Amino acid sequence: MGAPSTTGRPLLPAEYDADLRARLAALDTASDEHAQDQRPINTQNAYKADWKTWEAFCTQFQIPTTAATRGTLRAFVDYLWNREKRAYSTIDRKLAGVVVTLRLPPYRVVVDPEATKAARELLKDYRKKAEEAEEPARGRGKAPAMRLDSLRLIVDKCDGDIFGVRDRAMLLLGFSIAARRAELAGLRLRNIRDDDNGLLVDVRVSKTDPRTVPVPYGANPATCPVRAWKAWAEAAQIADPDRHAFRRIHHTGSVQPQGLTPQRAGDIITAAGLRAGIEVLFTGHSVRSGLATEARRAGKDRKAIAAITGHKEGSKVLDGYMQIVDQWDEQDNALIGIGL
Rank of each mutant, 00 (worst) to 15 (best):
I278S: 06
T261K: 03
R190D: 13
Q258E: 12
T261E: 04
K316G: 14
Q237R: 13
G290V: 06
D195Y: 12
T309K: 04
I278N: 05
H251T: 04
R247A: 12
I269T: 03
D242S: 14
W229V: 11
E294K: 09
A245Q: 03
V205K: 01
V287E: 10
E313L: 12
S286L: 07
V215T: 01
W232N: 06
T270G: 05
A298M: 09
K316Y: 07
P241I: 00
Y217V: 04
H251F: 10
R248G: 15
V280R: 03
I268M: 02
R227H: 04
P214G: 13
R275F: 06
Q263F: 12
V255A: 14
T309S: 15
I249R: 07
R227A: 08
I278V: 06
V201I: 01
E313G: 10
T252E: 08
I268K: 00
A295F: 15
L199Y: 07
G299T: 04
L260M: 11
L318A: 12
L274W: 07
R297D: 15
R190S: 14
A233G: 08
R264K: 09
A231H: 02
G218F: 08
P216T: 02
R248Q: 15
C224H: 01
D195E: 11
A219L: 13
L199I: 04
V201R: 04
G259W: 00
D195C: 14
A222Y: 09
L291Q: 09
H244L: 06
D240H: 01
V203I: 07
H251G: 13
A245R: 00
Y321E: 09
I308V: 14
N220Y: 02
T223Y: 00
L187W: 03
C224N: 04
K303N: 12
E234K: 08
I249L: 08
D267R: 02
S315A: 10
A292T: 03
V205R: 01
A298Q: 14
H244I: 00
L189S: 09
D319V: 02
G273P: 01
E313F: 12
G218M: 01
V203F: 02
K207F: 09
I268D: 01
K316W: 09
P225R: 00
G253H: 11
D202S: 15
R211W: 07
A233V: 09
R193L: 07
H250A: 15
A228N: 02
D319I: 03
E313Q: 15
T270W: 02
L187F: 09
A233N: 11
G299S: 11
D209N: 14
K230A: 11
